[in-house]
Design a protein around this nucleic acid. Structure first.
Lengths: 237, 237
DNA sequence: GTCTATAGAGCGATAGAC
DNA sequence: GTCTATCGCTCTATAGAC
């Protein structure tokens, strides 16, 4: 792993060589499109217009390059999500607070401009990685997203106090599914709908997804309705 | 490995050699776990306990093996989906007909017993393929699933006459997202929930997913509510 | 039908010249 | 920092013995 230390205390403060920037950009795009294992170092360096040896020189390895992408993207995206979450908890009794929480989570993930925490490509990359059994990807996602996801689940719990904890996690899981599938397979809905629906249209996705997911979250609790004061259903076997 | 129900209904008249059956079974499992590009012919043949050359001898190529898996699984699964769909259109005004349509679509996809059209492993395989830009996979999915999906969208349209066609496709897309993400990344919800939720528990997934998706489908139409209905010009639509 | 052996290509990573 | 050349490995697919 002995490669030049980057150790940036200030995240983006590094000027970063042109080669590095080109590699980060090309790798994010190609990994998002084909997954980590689906792209070779040769393809990466060719797409970035740099030498074959540059990946190992600047990032130590192909995996080091993936870690650098996370290092670069995660904090801005989570900051943007939490900033928007903070904006929508103030009037906690507002009827559309649920919609705003959901939008706070998915809008930054869909936004195509990567400059203010938005990152459609990076979201697509995480979706692609979630299929592969890449140990590093698991570690990176847990490290960078656990805290934010827990904050959102907590906000959802406050907005929907009748749901059990298990139900909250399940519904958050279905939210992730809708988001990731949209990023990873936009062509299926385009094909099925005969071109009527375009999953690459961020505004359309937000318009359609937020009310759908919000209505799903508002479905009556099965756990709490069937047993008053119930604790939780056993769902392990 | 010797299921008692194994020769039910003779879905493929072929007796199929032991080598072929072992390869189909091992390949379905490994492709589902690691995707098509993530598994080598060497791993496949080793897992099946057959010779390295058997894939090319029996199926022509690695891609031929994938096509054979679809050939074997698609018809039973779609037949089971359509059989269940037929069971739930009779009382079209029944309040839970929507729930039953949704369950008719996802239950066979989640069922772990592959003998009667159910195929959790095969669903996971399709989810994994949807990430890769495998041209053959796209072709196979379109060939085998377009007709069934259209039947379900038509049934959903009858159950929810207020939704526009675009909204129906979007909501069906979110259904697919929840289903595929559950199959492909069951570990994320287990991790986030601290083990409270188990995406490998078919009953739990059905219990949680059907009401969530149904409530999402029942969200008011944005297209029909905000636009043409405001004016009373048109007497019928 | 089943096997061994291997062709021919591509892979990640590195050594060492400049 | 950037480059070429190359090591050691794995891949899919096939030829040819049995």
């Amino acid at each position: 792993m002995g490669h030049p230390i980057e150790e940036s205390a200030a995240l983006v403060a590094e000027p970063a060589s042109d080669t590095k920037r080109r590699l980060l950009s090309a790798a994010e795009r190609l990994f998002a499109e084909h997954g980590f294992g689906g792209v070779s170092v040769r393809q990466l360096t060719a797409a970035a217009g740099v030498n074959l040896a540059a990946v190992n020189y600047h990032f130590g390895s192909k995996e080091g390059l993936l870690a650098a992408i996370f290092e670069q993207r995660c904090r801005p995206m989570n900051d943007e999500r939490l900033r928007r979450l903070g904006d929508c908890v103030e009037p906690a009794d507002h009827p559309e607070v649920l919609e705003r929480i959901i939008a706070a989570f998915i809008a930054p993930a869909l936004a195509s401009s990567a400059d203010r925490g938005g990152g459609a490509t990076f979201t697509r990359l995480r979706a692609a990685l979630s299929v592969e059994h890449n140990e590093l990807a698991r570690t990176l996602i847990a490290r960078y997203f656990d805290a934010t996801s827990e904050r959102f689940v907590a906000a959802l719990a406050r907005a929907l106090p009748d749901l059990s904890r298990a139900e909250l996690f399940w519904r958050f899981h279905f939210l992730l599914g809708g988001l990731y599938y949209t990023m990873i397979n936009p062509s299926r809905i385009a094909h099925l709908s005969g071109g009527l629906c375009d999953a690459g249209d961020v505004e359309a996705v937000l318009t359609q997804m937020v009310p759908f997911i919000a209505a799903g979250f508002r479905a009556p609790s099965l756990d709490r309705l069937s047993r008053p004061r119930a604790r939780r259903k056993r769902s392990a076997r």
